[in-house]
């Protein structure tokens, strides 16, 4: 291999937040990596764990309170106070999922299956799992293990490897 080969060969992506957009950012990047023939690890920590908890992974929401980038249908800025209207978060989250489905972006559980089928690996953070009292059986069967930060760094190493925090 030449010294000029600066291609990325492995990515290890950390997902620490549990909103639709944060989780999908990690999944799209991870799945994109395996589709390009790279090795890919996804590491879920803190609220990012929502994406791998069996009975919650397909029910993620987008935050509407304190999200100044939120727009109303038609493009007008959504006044931030509207975020507190009951049902607003569920409605916006439903719309997000509908729009993604139109682009053939799969639900979280299906996306994870595609990622794993492509050779990607999933890990959960031990500290966060302990804190949220989560056990292996609470998590998707595709999660390889609940690991420490040290173990994460170990498997993230190697030539042409990158760590991404979404």
């Amino acid at each position: 291999m030449s010294d000029n080969d600066h291609r990325i060969k492995k990515v290890s992506i950390i997902c620490a937040k549990g909103t639709i957009e944060d989780v999908y950012a990690s999944l799209v990047m991870g799945n994109g990596a395996v589709m390009e023939g790279m090795e890919a690890n996804l590491f879920f920590t803190f609220f990012g764990l929502e994406a791998v908890i069996k009975n919650r992974m397909d029910n993620l929401h987008t935050g509407v309170v304190g999200n100044p980038a939120m727009r109303l249908p038609g493009g007008m800025r959504m006044p931030t106070w509207m975020g507190i209207i009951p049902g607003m978060e569920a409605m916006v989250s439903g719309m997000m999922k509908k729009e993604m489905d139109k682009l053939d972006v799969p639900p979280v559980s299906e996306f994870i299956e595609l990622f794993v089928a492509g050779g990607g690996n999933l890990y959960a953070c031990k500290l966060a799992a302990d804190m949220f009292k989560l056990k292996k059986e609470d998590l998707s069967e595709h999660v390889t293990g609940i690991i420490t930060v040290g173990e994460f760094y170990e498997l993230a190493g190697g030539e042409g490897s990158q760590i991404i925090f979404t």
Binding site: N31, M35, L103, D104, V105, P106, E110, L114, A117, G118
Partner: peptide, 9 residues
């Protein structure tokens, strides 16, 4: 149509 990995599946 767009080609996606989901479509392949």
């Amino acid at each position: 149509e767009q080609l996606t990995i989901r479509g392949i599946n």
